[in-house]
Design a protein around this nucleic acid. Sequence first.
DNA 1: TCCTAAATATGATTTTTATCATGTTTTTTA
DNA 2: TAAAAAACATGATAAAAATCATATTTAGGA
Lengths: 143, 143
Amino acid sequence: MFSNSAKYAINAVLYLAIHSKGSEKILARDISGSISVPKAYIAKLLQELVRHDIISSERGPKGGFYLTEANRKVPMIQIVEMIDGEELFKSCVLGLAHCNEAKPCPLHEKISPYRWSLLTALEYNTIQDYADEISKNKSYLPQ
Amino acid sequence: MFSNSAKYAINAVLYLAIHSKGSEKILARDISGSISVPKAYIAKLLQELVRHDIISSERGPKGGFYLTEANRKVPMIQIVEMIDGEELFKSCVLGLAHCNEAKPCPLHEKISPYRWSLLTALEYNTIQDYADEISKNKSYLPQ
DNA sequence: TCCTAAATATGATTTTTATCATGTTTTTTA
DNA sequence: TAAAAAACATGATAAAAATCATATTTAGGA
């Protein structure tokens, strides 16, 4: 479904959302440790997330990664799209170019409502929304 | 979601289901052409499908690929599992080991219906079931 | 102002997936 | 019984994704 990179990025961003309060910063090393992804790998992803204004960072001693209020309002879908591209939920599951409501592929009818609801869940819920659910023990991350 | 190979295999098998009536055989070349996948590639996939008793073949002149009655009763899921493995629908979308109904990951609830719809559509419908839908113009393949 | 701790930039390596190529075996038909 | 047409087996190459490594830049603190 998602690439490994997309999974890691989602985990990392949610970890940040929960652990960095205000301007408190989190080290790449800590994120790496807690989501069990090699530091060099997650560091690269974090840098790309910064470039896309999905998370924030500061260099030097006392530096690290954190989320601004604006970052917390970013819809989840942006993380996925940054890494796996925009076609992930939009192109036909069988790879057929013609597939649409009028000329559906053999799987289209069976899955499209559920696919659509997943897409909207990612489009209309922000990073903060997901973090809130975790805080309320409605969902869980490792640890 | 599916690998390219799995998509190609589904397309190829459905093409066979529709075009090979009875013992009439279809050439790898024809399948290749109509689903726009290089012959050498689809040929390899077809051979693996034969090894797994999902489709049938005969060598030599007048040979080709076809479906027996037994083949037509094979559930669609077998094609996907042969190629992408059984974990595809079972492991957590975020890659979290603990994730289940009791301790869901942040995306679990949103994605479950989608995954479930796809899984049941593939588990409870056979190759013939899908071919019938196409014959009745309820769904479409290329061409 | 110098040292150190952090992100950043860049690119190398490895692994997996996708694609291509080629020789072998089987079977039909002349 | 020989030629040709097909699948089959095997492996080579290419492209993409995942992972690892290293040098550079930035900023805080002694």
